[in-house]
Write a protein that binds this DNA or RNA. Structure first.
Lengths: 179, 179
DNA sequence: GTTTTCATGTAAACAGTTACATGATTGC
DNA sequence: GCAATCATGTAACTGTTTACATGAAAAC
């Protein structure tokens, strides 16, 4: 049950509309939590009904018009409660490694090499993007706890991409070397 | 749609019962794909109905008794088709980084340090376990493609744990230093 | 005979993805 | 007026988790 808490965090950082949240999930929050606009609108509705957030401005039917939300005190309390929860690391789920393992029993090595190269290119792009965020962050100060935490989390995103690049290089060297 | 293909791969490597598969998902397959026994039994039922696998031995009501499955030719074909599919890397979803980011807005730093330490200990344990698998694998030969692929995938598991340990060390140094 | 372990399963709730629908505003 | 973009939403489906149920075999 992390999506509502991701939204509460994002809204506490800055009150936003559904679409703005969607964009922030594609950017900064996205390197460790993703969500589509459909998920976000559904969850915003639930959080509002539960009294954890409220819409700013007037109510009424608003289809097609911007609707900003802010966190209410009970929402902040819920988030405070949640940060104290203990939860074990998730079991990883990665279809690429699964697919690689499947080639061990059914063969088809050439296609797999292409696919690994394609993934390597995608991870390189993402890494470059994160480095760009890092560069921009460096220009601002890192005084507050919030800044420090953001930097740590971005660093996590960067290191995760480096892990993938290291592993993909190794895998490609191994598979290409032995054809 | 990876679970059925994970099961097909595991059954091609070795025909097994549901419980045996569950254990293999906790072990070797587990470092990149996890599944509970409930998921596995349900999926075995679907795969059998779809004619991709079949139960060995007699049929009839078998609740409480072991039931082994093997992959049929159509199951192998389905897996061959699937390894050729292109799929982009998944967006990561990690509640720990989310929780850390939430502390940036609601505070409560001390609890977070404990939680990061706890995770570090868990990742160290898992790394030690993988190193042990690696040590045992080294004793066997690596001649076949299957052996090479298994080694690569295990290496991925190891490097992923090393990523976590590196990041957790950095995060703890940062948070404890400024606590 | 009772507890533990092996073994298979069902049901309900929760989370995430994909496809589609619709209205408001801006640029041309 | 028309197209593009901003903006919010619904519905159906798929996948995952949690809680519970049940029977067979072995250990004591």
């Amino acid at each position: 049950m992390s999506l509502p808490h991701a939204i509460l965090t994002a809204l506490l950082e800055k009150p936003s509309s559904g679409l703005e949240l969607t964009r922030r999930f594609d950017r900064s929050i996205g390197y460790f939590w993703s969500a589509t606009h459909q998920q976000i609108y559904r969850e915003l509705g639930k959080l509002e009904k539960a009294g954890l957030i409220r819409a700013l401005d007037g109510e009424g039917p608003t289809r097609g018009q911007k609707k900003e939300y802010e966190v209410l005190p009970s929402g902040r309390e819920e988030l405070e409660r949640w940060v104290g929860v203990r939860e074990d690391p998730r079991a990883p789920r990665d279809p690429l490694l699964l697919r690689l393992r499947a080639t061990g029993v059914v063969g088809v090595g050439g296609d797999m090499v292409d696919e690994l190269r394609r993934h390597r290119a995608l991870h390189r792009e993402r890494l470059a993007e994160y480095r760009e965020f890092e560069r921009r962050d460096a220009a601002r100060g890192h005084g507050t706890e919030r800044d420090r935490v953001h930097r740590l989390v971005l660093q996590g995103g960067i290191e995760l991409e480096l892990f993938w690049l290291t592993w993909l290089d190794r895998a490609l060297a191994d598979l290409e070397g032995a054809g």
